[in-house]
Amino acid sequence: MSTHDAVTPASARIILICSGKGGVGKTTLTANLGIALARLGERTVVIDADFGLRNLDLLLGLENRIVYTAQEVLAGSCRLEQALVKHKLEPNLSLMPAGNPRMLEWLTPDDMKTVANLVAERSDYVLIDCPAGVEQGFKNAAAACREAIVITTPEMSAVRDADRVIGLLNSQGIQPVQLVLNRVRPKMVANQEMLAVDDVTDILALPLLGLVVEDEQVIVSTNRGEPLTLNGTSSPAARAYVNVARRLRGEGVPLIDPSKERRGLRARLMAKLRKSGNS
């Protein structure tokens, strides 16, 4: 699929990763998806568009290797290759670091477009880690993308904010927009104490690109600065992120069914009671 020698400007997929609400897993998804795509042989660049509160460098373990940022690229004071930070263990992946927060005063949608199109010239996938909110930072990042992944958790506030973002993406004609449902707790879903997967997909009316169950290993991997997808696919979240990457490339990978996960005694008992109550 990759054509590493030819320059293919228009063919790169520029994908916005956004959520509206903060803390639902945008940056974690960007880092893991970036590594997963790179490991599948795709030349991938992740752009940190969160100039105010940048963190993508930290999750990738590249925070000490940043010399130049998008600011110097836009100012023309460094070459693109100088700003791009190549991942030490996964050379197919590079990071375009966010510039200084003061840039937010003058940064425009066209600036983000310029940066994204520049890196797209030499890659197969460009992932833009969007800031939280629906204000200027979001508008800048959204202007640069051609398609989008909305990530949310099965919580009311996250779903509501995702709905707002989807409305904005639709009004800008961004297509396709796909959904990743993060931090699903199968036990709580089985106990009906959490929005079910179908509830969220029905309400948001988006195709489901991936389903990530709550996984403590995500925190451990952040502590280490090594995304889970970097070290094989041992944990549930790592498997889910790799599956998102494969589905993005068009592979038919079936979704996991959280209700098929092993249930506790109480959940099984409740399910039985409900069944006998309905009949």
Partner: peptide, 17 residues
Amino acid sequence: PSGALARERLQLVLAHD
């Protein structure tokens, strides 16, 4: 169960949003 409650409340608030 609170899951059903969440769904109902969400649908209402989204209709207005």
